[in-house]
């Protein structure tokens, strides 16, 4: 009786024998798997961001480099003291814009996996508001693509933060200036 393993081996060999250009077969299988296995992770959540899980999700044998960026709630902004931040989003568009940014990153760098997670709601000092994780074959591309994703997120992804200052007042953060206008 044939085992499954030997059956697969046999079929693979006979398939190869029917092809004129044998050397291309393994390459094409590899390429196809490669395309299918590339992950784009995008999420908007009220829960704590599981950045360890995200980091594991973007790691790959094909990537020699994996980096993780975390944005956290900072206490002082130009001398003014923050006690907490409140985040809100236009969730459907935020996800669509995140996917678009990852698509653009893939056009510029050889990205294996990429992930962007943004948290919403009331966040205390030190809590993580955003995580960007990316893997590429070499480290230079990971740093560049990661920087691109977080910089572009801050211009294009419709999420807003409201400062809760230590004097009890609140204030929406709405950047002004040319570099805050999204590309149309």
């Amino acid at each position: 009786m044939q085992t499954t393993e030997s059956l697969l081996t046999y079929n693979f060999r006979s398939a190869q024998q029917t092809l004129l250009f044998k050397p291309y077969l393994p390459f094409r299988i590899y390429f196809k798997m490669n395309q299918e296995n590339k992950k784009d992770i995008t999420e908007i959540t009220h829960d704590k961001i599981d950045y360890q899980q995200l980091t594991e999700d973007i790691r790959s044998n094909q990537a020699g480099a994996a980096i993780l960026f975390l944005g956290t709630v900072r206490e002082f902004t130009k001398g003014q003291q923050t006690t907490a931040l409140d985040y809100e989003a236009y969730p459907e568009m935020a996800i669509a814009q995140m996917k678009e940014l990852i698509k653009q990153a893939r056009e510029k760098w050889p990205v294996i996996h990429a992930g962007i997670i943004h948290r919403l709601g009331h966040l205390e000092l030190g809590e993580i508001s955003v995580a960007v994780a990316i893997s590429t074959p070499h480290r230079g591309d990971s740093f560049e693509a990661g920087q691109f994703l977080i910089d572009q997120l801050k211009i294009h992804v419709p999420v807003w933060k409201k400062e809760n200052w230590s004097d009890g007042t609140t204030e929406w953060v709405h950047p002004t200036g040319e570099d805050t206008v999204p590309t149309k």
Partner: peptide
Amino acid sequence: IACFPPVSGG
């Protein structure tokens, strides 16, 4: 249609 001030996520 949606209207909003410049974004400030991150």
